[in-house]
Design a protein around this nucleic acid. Sequence first.
DNA 1: CACCAAGATGGAACCGGTTCCAATTGGCGA
DNA 2: TCGCCAATTGGAACCGGTTCCATCTTGGTG
Lengths: 338, 338
Amino acid sequence: MSKTTIRDVAKRAGVGVGTVSRVLNNSPAVSETTRGKVQSAIEALNFSPSLAARRLSRGKTMAIGVIVPFFTNPSVVRRLQGIVSVLSVSKYDLVLFDIEKVNQRDSFLRTIPQRKMADGLLLVSLTPTDADVEQFSLANVPTVLVDAYHPALNHVRVDNIAGGYQATKYLIELGHHKIGYISDYLDDPFNSPVRDRFTGYKQALAEAGIEFRAEYHCEDRHGRFQAQQMTHNLLTLPDPPTAIFAYSDTQAIGVIEAAQELGLSVPDDLSVIGFDNIEAAEYLHITTIRQALFESGVQGAELLLSLMQTPTSEPQEILLPTELIARHTTTQYINGTF
Amino acid sequence: MSKTTIRDVAKRAGVGVGTVSRVLNNSPAVSETTRGKVQSAIEALNFSPSLAARRLSRGKTMAIGVIVPFFTNPSVVRRLQGIVSVLSVSKYDLVLFDIEKVNQRDSFLRTIPQRKMADGLLLVSLTPTDADVEQFSLANVPTVLVDAYHPALNHVRVDNIAGGYQATKYLIELGHHKIGYISDYLDDPFNSPVRDRFTGYKQALAEAGIEFRAEYHCEDRHGRFQAQQMTHNLLTLPDPPTAIFAYSDTQAIGVIEAAQELGLSVPDDLSVIGFDNIEAAEYLHITTIRQALFESGVQGAELLLSLMQTPTSEPQEILLPTELIARHTTTQYINGTF
DNA sequence: CACCAAGATGGAACCGGTTCCAATTGGCGA
DNA sequence: TCGCCAATTGGAACCGGTTCCATCTTGGTG
């Protein structure tokens, strides 16, 4: 049983508790001989200090809270992997919170900073409301957003408007005029990228003089299956699109499955472009807009660690690049009549 | 700032600290009027209790430690998703530890239980040594292994020997005699499944009267790229195998890539079977042995929670089934001359 | 040889909850 | 009216570290 306390150690080593504490914390103000005595007492008693007591007396948790929505989403997982890679070699523990239901958002976003559960917070793919932000600053816990934006908070993200533009423009350059957009719900307040990419999509259309057609945009919950459904509807329209821009690679997979189901060939009958460049996109040779998912986690975690060391008054912003990766699901549009 | 303590609340409500504590913990021994006073004081002061203090005084952390090796491995992630799905609706926090380097294993496995960092422990895909197990029981922290085995510990796993047998037997039934096994290092003490599947592989061979050929077994670090390398070697042997059993789907993907690189068609020139049924296996139509990855996490977490409620003296064992999923990377062996 | 600063050390107070015991109050039966 | 018990309540002690201040050495200095 590790009921041994610092006082037991002190008694056994014949020193005061303060000295034991100093040894535990590598304070230089301990003579070598005393340090030795304490150390051997520690070993003899198989003592190791209670984290809880340490946290309380130091007023620090030595933990970083990571809040993630829909932990099953591959791009979220990839970002988290980046975060883990940084934190697992830091001295901080990583406490993971997964938000699956809407009502969890509020309670988490409010109670976690309040209760001083963590010395720092990382929000992944979660755009906080102004009210949330107020809670954060009230609690005075350093916070970094990864793949989300708020003017008052530090963040790491990509330019999603540019990314949406890039994807759509590529399809246009391939000769497509009838381009669908398959996405999550646009009005999800916590998901700003979905709106930004949509904006980029419309910008590219407008720039090319192509009129936006409302029936070419479908929205639903995120997921491969939902994307498949939506695509089915899109492709059975009287005048179906010849290319589809999917908000995510996961959805692009659903799009491709729907096309196959209808006997259409990708890319010959339908061009498909995704977004994220998750691993599966590589296996399946999906043309996509790459964003550095893992890297975003790394940078977010590093930014947070540095801010915990030395806070800045201005919110820090890191903008990562996006990059078009042309693979095998997109091709030149050949006019039906030729 | 949330510097407000329970004493401030007590003062403001005109009651004792004990009473405030009782209100916080929904003790029935508080009159409604007092409860009301305290509650409004709490709201007025925007008070929320310090987790650290609570942990110390209660002697419980309300956290569950999850120790995971190589968090980038998709099957590990999938199990973790199962764990998260259970814990995120429980009252416990999930503290995640990722072990990437060998020396981290020892320090984690030793210090985490010791320091009472968590009220319960979940080890994923990590077979502990006897010495580790002793530490666990010494610390008296309930522990459940997921995808690992030790006679003295609770665990959730599949029968990997049977799985390896199943995979190999299937290839044999398809007419293959020259069957390779691509795997992680067999002598990794923390990875027992790799040995078990190998055992199953050899059993199936033996049963069919096929002699085991050492040159048909390759081992390396886990990974798609390494698998690709190994397969390249295997396929350029003077007498190459006609089928390959890969320890994991990730490795199966590498195997397939190597075959394509050499201009061989899968499954016509080479049958490939994987293990795990990760999501990518579905996309890529890889024949595999399905094991319920997500489910294993769910069951492990549930078992742990129940053990934390009511400990059992005997270690609990949950055995999940494996299932062959025939897809498009395996086919009948057609004798070359035919 | 006296004096002082720097280096060690001991230990009380503290971090902010929980818990348990003693004290107070009110209701009710005898 | 009095005694007794149950329901409430107050608050000291405690959880196990850290920290700061007072105390005690020591070695160097004039």
